[in-house]
Amino acid sequence: MNYIFIFLILISFVCALINGRMDIVIDEMLKASTRAVEIALGLIGIMAFWLGIVNIAKDCGLIDLFSKLIKKPLLLLFPDLKNNPSALSNIALNISANALGLTNAATPFGIKAMEDMQEKNQNKEIATDSMCMFLAVNTAGFQLVPAVVIAILSANGMKNPTQIILPTLFATTIAFISSIFFAKIFQKLSQAKKELFK
């Protein structure tokens, strides 16, 4: 991110110099900064509303219920966690909280799950298959409602920003499934490699 930031600004100055558009560039720089604050402030209301709603879900045990439901199917993805129920339930809680967009609540569960898996790990510096699977699934970012994005669209005056929910859900589901698929394939490949060098 560091390089992207530096690169973007330096290149703009160089291009502005060549194209003789330095005044426009400076003007845009100042305007965009103001716009950024406006967007962020406009976001507060919707974000607060959504986080309020999902906090009810958390408090009345919906997330726990959901995580219980997905525990069984999760064992298919993490077969070596059969003897590590704590890791499995933390993974389930992490995925459930993430699905509702509670990123702040999800991260502690995720870290706890990693610690549980690390406890049974033979080599503490090398990731296990379950760890890789967990990470892959997590990076796919499965989410029922992309609250922040909707908040930004609405703060900018889009009429019905919820129209993006379903297409986003399709895209994120495909990413989710493919993360499982790729993790499994790479897992098989690394197993095959190990056998070969035995």
Binding site: I111, M114, E115, M117, Q118, K124, E125, I126, A127, M131, C132, M133, L135, A136, T139, A140, S179, F182, A183, F186, Q187, L189, S190
Partner: peptide, 14 residues
């Protein structure tokens, strides 16, 4: 958080 240094195929899958 847990000090894993070798990510193996985790990043690639992601």
């Amino acid at each position: 958080a847990v000090g894993i240094k070798k990510f193996r195929y985790a990043l690639l899958s992601g």
